Computed example of a mutant assay.
Amino acid sequence: MSIVKVVTDSTADIPKELVEELDITVVPLKVHFGEDMYEDGVDLTPEQFYDKLHQNNLMPSTSQPTPHQFEEVYKKLAQETNGAHILSIHLSSRLSGTYQSAHIASQELEGDIDITVVDSKKASYAIGIMVTEIARLAKEGADKRTCEQRLTELLSDTSVFFMVDTLEYLEKNGRIGKASAVLGSLLKIKPILSLNDEGEVYPFEKARGNKKALARIYKEIETRYGSSSVHVGISHAQAEDEANIIIEEIEKRMTTASSVITSIGPVIGAHVGPGTLSISVTKAE
């Protein structure tokens, strides 16, 4: 029985302790401040990134790994494990070319290494919540078929909701128009964002302020999952206190199999800005 090794990218925002515990391979995306380039989570931590963001007038840009980088990762894993099946799970292809780079690399190695590349159609810990579940199964000895079947369930069962503190970053990154950003800020409208079935960002609903926005998200989660046991992940951009409050509230309302709080890393942070909160939920087995 071939073992399974799990690969993802840095936009999954998985805490380092879980990456190490579950032996997950993380391929970093890049963040650019003018001429300076950093690898997400390698030589630029979330804390360092947000410090730079506050100190720098330049809007950062991001870029995906190259197919060659993925090839090197896949070759190294195959060599170290004597031919493990590689399950590579990545940021929504509608948000980045990362999945495409991984897919090209897998095609180059077709016939030599057994690789399945998956478009998560999610972002931040909505990817991580699935990746950690699959990596845990793999660590327990689950085979390729079992891991892929469970991933199929997770892809359909996982929900994510984002709240941004400011509309500035969404506007500058072309997600909303300037007029909408100015009007939303003046009216203190808190857009609740989500990802649709194609992996594109869309406005799930609008609320007047954080309290009403969170109440709407809690209600939607309860409607979707009912009495099911769930895994919950809260990712935040310099909003840890709020993240802790959200976890406590969800644990009061739902049966939680696990809960994780993690920082939104530099790549996702460059597109949503500080103060962002993201709630990811999926069904536990």
Rank of each mutant, 00 (worst) to 15 (best):
T45W: 08
Y169C: 03
L44T: 04
T11E: 10
Q100R: 04
L53R: 07
G233C: 15
D197P: 01
A215Q: 14
T98N: 06
R253H: 02
V272S: 12
A126M: 09
E35C: 00
D112A: 10
E80Q: 13
S278I: 10
Y99K: 01
H32R: 06
T81S: 15
R145S: 11
L137Y: 03
I127P: 14
S88V: 09
S227C: 07
L87R: 07
L151A: 02
H271R: 01
Q55L: 06
S156G: 02
A179T: 12
A142V: 01
D13P: 14
A213V: 03
H85D: 12
D157M: 04
I127L: 08
E21N: 11
D51V: 01
T166H: 09
Y125T: 13
E47C: 07
I176H: 05
T45V: 09
Q48F: 05
S278E: 14
Y218S: 02
I264H: 12
N82W: 00
H85Y: 07
T116G: 10
H68C: 00
G226R: 03
A123G: 11
E108K: 08
G41P: 15
F161H: 11
E133I: 00
P266V: 02
T276V: 07
E242Y: 02
L137H: 02
C147K: 05
M130H: 09
R253G: 01
L186S: 13
Y74D: 12
D43A: 06
V160N: 04
K75N: 14
L91I: 13
A138H: 05
G177W: 00
M37F: 00
D119M: 04
I264T: 11
I247R: 11
H54A: 11
K5I: 00
H32T: 01
H103V: 01
K252V: 00
T116V: 09
S2T: 14
S2H: 09
Y99H: 12
D36K: 12
L95D: 05
G97N: 02
T158S: 13
S96W: 05
H271P: 08
Q107G: 15
T158I: 03
S88E: 13
T256V: 15
F204G: 01
F161K: 03
G275L: 02
L154A: 07
Q238M: 14
I14M: 05
K52T: 02
E240V: 10
F162P: 12
L58Q: 12
T25W: 04
F49E: 14
E71Y: 04
E133T: 15
F70E: 08
Q238V: 13
G141L: 00
E71C: 14
R150T: 10
I245D: 14
P65M: 05
